[in-house]
Each structure stands twice: as structure tokens, then as C-alpha cells.
């Protein structure tokens, strides 16, 4: 039996665990490690309310406010908006054409058993935002 897990993420989000079942907007089910860029793009198209943005990593540094976390600086979408988020180094991001990537692939593998590339400045990550209503 399949049960729909809440989207909100606990401290160690289990949806990044290797083998986790992900439901795309098309209804298709895929394992997290098998996802491709096109799966996200297609799901955003089908969902109607969400839009995929290209978010380029422009800076990675240790977080000043929260020890142990890293501050990721992005330029987001066509407007190149500046956005900064603080995340654990093992948090995976999906990079266009590359796949799962994180600031600490070793820790990501330990925690989630999910193979990751090193996340680097210049990588373009998949992010989402609300579709602008006309």
C-alpha cells in the first residue's frame, strides 16, 4: 500500500533517502536516485501552479549566523534575483544536466546513501516558484 508522506521536511528529510518513492505531477512513480532533469521540468508544466527556475550558485561559504551550516548564494530566474539560504552541507540539490549535488557528497552518502556530485560555484540548480498569474 502507498501512503502520501507530508511534504514538510524533518531534520533529516527522508525523501532524499536512496530508494525513496517520488510521485511526479504526471502521477508516475520514480526512485529519488533515478530522477532526471526532464522529470522536474515536465512536472512543473503539468502542475500548472509551479514554475521551474534556473538558480545559479554564485557563492558558497560557511554560515555566519548558524554554525555548521553553509550559506548558498543564488541568482534566480530571468530576473537574476539574489537569494541566500543556509543549509546543512549534506543537503542535496538537483543540478541541471548533472543530477544530485551537495557541498559534502561524503556526508550525503552517509546520511542518505544518495550518490552526489560536489556542488560548485557556477552550477545551475533546479528551484521552484509560484507561476505568475496573468
Amino acid at each position: 500500500a502507498l501512503s502520501h508522506a507530508p511534504a514538510s521536511a524533518p531534520s533529516n528529510p527522508s525523501h532524499f533517502m536512496k530508494g525513496a518513492i517520488i510521485q511526479l505531477a504526471t502521477g508516475e512513480l520514480k526512485r529519488v536516485e533515478d530522477l532526471q532533469t526532464q522529470d522536474f521540468v515536465r512536472s512543473a508544466e503539468v502542475s500548472g501552479g509551479l514554475k521551474i527556475d534556473s538558480s545559479m550558485v554564485v557563492d558558497i561559504r560557511a554560515s555566519q549566523q548558524k554554525p555548521g551550516l553553509v550559506s548558498l548564494h543564488f541568482t534566480v530566474g530571468e530576473q537574476q534575483s539574489k537569494v541566500t539560504i543556509d543549509v546543512p552541507p549534506e543537503h542535496p540539490f538537483f543540478v541541471f544536466g548533472q543530477g544530485w549535488s551537495s557541498c559534502s557528497p561524503e556526508r550525503t552518502a552517509q546520511l542518505y546513501d544518495l550518490a552526489c556530485h560536489p556542488l560548485q560555484v557556477g552550477d545551475v540548480c533546479v528551484s521552484i516558484t509560484l507561476q505568475q498569474q496573468p
Binding site: 501512503s3 525523501h15 530522477l35 528551484s127
Partner: peptide, 25 residues
Amino acid sequence: NVEPRSVPVFPWHSLVPFLAPTQSD
């Protein structure tokens, strides 16, 4: 009498960050 084990299914959008401009410092 086997108890069915439910497998959690996560929505696709829970995997990617929601980056809206208002989040910048």
C-alpha cells in the same frame, strides 16, 4: 493474516528549493 506495509510516497516538489526573491538578506 499479513499486515500490509505502507510505503511513503513523496511529492516531486518537496525535493527542490522554493527560492523566492523575498528570502535574500
